[in-house]
Nucleic acid binder design. Structure first.
Lengths: 262, 262
DNA sequence: CAGACGCGGATTGTATACAGGCTGTGGACA
DNA sequence: TGTCCACAGCCTGTATACAATCCGCGTCTG
């Protein structure tokens, strides 16, 4: 199994393809680290921060923090309130539903395009990724599976040869990963999903766009159905909080120390 | 006909819905102005700039320029090369094709969703926008039509009630507008498109998702077919340049004054 | 006691100073 | 004459200083 560091690289590599070189500037590294921590939920959704606070946490100045956070905001991972402060973007049921709705639109289309344009070696990579399963009780294998799932879908998106489309799909999956990392399991058994993946990859490998579209649609539809039942138990006040968060730090308002007595 | 100032507001209002208040900070105004100038191509595609140069142009410091440009880069309107400089994102045939491909995926789906969720008064707004036509020889009416077309499609996207999806569709149209502003006309006569819009809006107003999906698909398909023939005359070396650009300023490399003689 | 007002403190927005990187030019050398 | 190397200059990346903004609390007033 791969290490966490490699995972960071994996996620990093498949991000916005428009930027060519990476990991050379402070903003870039900070952005990568923050993104990983947000996606893996080591930074609790909804948690509030100040620029200086984040700077202390990640040992960086305010300027890089600002830039990295601006980028994360644009990707939906962070929320910025002008003159107020920063907060890790909270996870909500409505966001989850929006993302699933988009998946239902994008993924079948992407699969169809990929079936027409994918290269032989990409097909091999896809097959390898589709073989990934996980054991229900093994936390590590589950996290590994989340990564493989992400890579699989990103690879299909890349195979469309439409960079802009690929970026958008990758972003959707990045945002979805937070829900999975927080414990929203894909399902009770690890091989059903794997089977769906294999069927989808087969259709793409056969270069059959119509079949690929249908299989992808089936896959997403079933995933939505599965998560729907799971979400019910996790709803509090219309917002889904999948992990206990210290009450004082959930609100995106100012983080203020008690005023000093005179 | 509305003024240019109002157009600026129109475009501004329908941008990324995640940010609530606008036009209060320097970055925000600078961003809006830059965006408008890029979309309307008063800043030539491909033109290179330095932070200080842009700052002089728009009377702002380097920090706001940086932030605004970063945002524009993320939206595909600007290109940043680390340690090198900034350039207005060039227009390429491949970008145009990518955008159209995405339109073909998103618009029918959005139309179908909108048919289910749109409100009565939004339908009225849609009808008003769909009535817009343009006269072939009237530059002003053409620009007005571009704006109406943009608003129409954005309104449909908003009616999906999926903010993330709506943002993405709006971005696609913003990027497409540059091509139109540069002179890639929609077609020879102004009413064919209007007719397509009216048919589409009718399907949405009838709350018929299947019809809406089909009409939107037809609309986009025809638009692609129309633009395909027009593009042929505008291709130079694989990159489309629809307007004469001073040769010295097109390349995204460093803008450097000739070195001072000793 | 309720509501309005003003001040304090902390935080973000912006400008500016400093450091590091990249490119182009000019000269030295083969 | 062609190639390589080093320096100079400009530019971006980052840190820091100053200004503007907002919130909370205390106080004052009715």
């Amino acid at each position: 199994m791969r290490s966490l560091a490699e995972l960071s690289i994996d996620i990093a590599q498949s991000r916005c393809n428009t930027r060519n070189r990476a990991m050379e500037t402070l903003v870039e590294t900070l952005y990568q680290r923050l993104r990983l921590d947000i996606v893996e939920c080591s930074l609790n959704p909804g948690k509030a921060f100040s620029e200086a606070g984040l700077g202390r946490l990640y040992d960086a100045g305010r300027t890089p923090v600002r830039e990295a956070c601006r980028r994360l905001e644009h990707e939906g991972l962070m929320r910025i309130t002008p003159f107020r402060g920063y907060a890790i973007a909270p996870l909500s049921v409505s966001e989850f539903q929006d993302l699933e709705e988009m998946q239902l639109i994008f993924e079948p289309a992407a699969a169809a395009l990929a079936a027409e344009r994918i290269s032989p070696q990409e097909i091999e990579e896809l097959r390898a990724l589709a073989r990934a399963e996980y054991r229900v009780d093994d936390k590590a294998s589950y996290r590994e599976f989340i990564r493989a799932n992400y890579q699989l879908h990103c690879l299909i998106a890349q195979a469309t040869r439409n960079i802009r489309l690929s970026d958008i799909i990758a972003n959707i999956h990045i945002r979805l990963m937070r829900f999975f990392y927080l414990g929203l399991s894909f399902e009770a058994h690890g091989h059903t999903l794997s089977n769906e993946h294999i069927v989808l990859v087969n259709a793409i490998a056969a270069r059959d766009p119509r079949a690929a579209r249908r299989k992808a649609a089936d896959h997403v539809t079933r995933a939505i159905a599965r998560s729907a039942t799971m979400l019910k138990g996790a709803i509090r006040f219309g917002e889904a909080v999948f992990e206990s968060v210290p009450a004082g730090n959930t609100s995106p308002v100012r983080v203020s120390k008690p005023r000093r007595g005179k």
